[in-house]
Amino acid sequence: MNAQAPTDLRTLSYAEAIREAMAIAMEADPTVILMGEDIGVYGGAFQVTLDLIDRFGPDRVMDTPISELGGAGVAVGAALTGLKPIFEFQFSDFAMLAMEQIVNQAAKLRYMLGGEASVPVVFRLPAGSGTGAAAQHSQSIEAWFGHVPGLKVLQPATPEDAKGMLLAALADPDPVMIFEHKLLYKMKGHVPAGSYLTPIGKALLRRAGTDVTIVAGSIMLHRALEAAEKLAAEGISAEVIDLRSIRPIDHETILASVRKTGRLMVVYEGVKAFGVGAEISAMVAESDAFDYLDAPILRLGGADAPVPYNPDLERASVPQVDTIEAAARRLVRREV
């Protein structure tokens, strides 16, 4: 994977970076608390909160009952009244049990109350396939929340961003959902020490190119970068943009790139239909960048099926390096 840090730079895993962000925030602000299932002595299903209970105690690292709706709602109520809770869903799939509190309450309270209240809650959601956990523990549902005014929806792809985005989310007065890809937790990369904020709503150009723009977030960024490297060997220059934020979405970075390359591919793990790709494609089609398109827009998304168990099926159900590479090649060679 990319983001290989020079040896003299400090290197942390994605999970360690998130943990460091939580620790920094809790040291600095006594109103920051963690809530979630098995996040205490167990350390969380993915060991992200490991040892934080030792440092901050059970009052600030709270194991909740298996009550996603109630737990999320308690976090919302606490955020409304002076705390800054970070609520961990054990799997992002379980957020569906808490849709009421996320969508009807957290996202809308500020508006319903005419700006008289804030809900500075942060939801952390381990997402994505590739672990053999099948249909109910592997989904990528971030786009669902992109449809909800009042929420902010982030997707860090690197350890550095995972830390910076969590700290930015805590500094934000509105509810923020951070989708963390389970396969990235062990990924290592350079992480600056101390506190820093990754701006919310800003995409990042990760690789410059001239022939095709590939927009991808989370783990798909790494697959897109790997595909771009292979394409470069055959003379195809792909520009890769790390989407980073689904809501708000960074129009300008994407449009500027499309104006430059004239071709656009959107790669995402969620089901292809009605997803992030549809939003980005429509946004380009509605903008002045439309006039710069020199080929149809391509979306590469998840299969129109629940995430399957069989490892080959599972792999085939979401975009991989070879499928991204092949699609970009066809696009640039005018085969679509």
Partner: peptide, 19 residues
């Protein structure tokens, strides 16, 4: 939402206790 305020009230009580 019927029942929408119940967890929120618990959260507000949690704030009072923590603070």
């Amino acid at each position: 939402i019927v029942g929408g305020g119940l967890p929120i009230a618990v959260g507000a009580a949690l704030s009072a206790k923590r603070l």
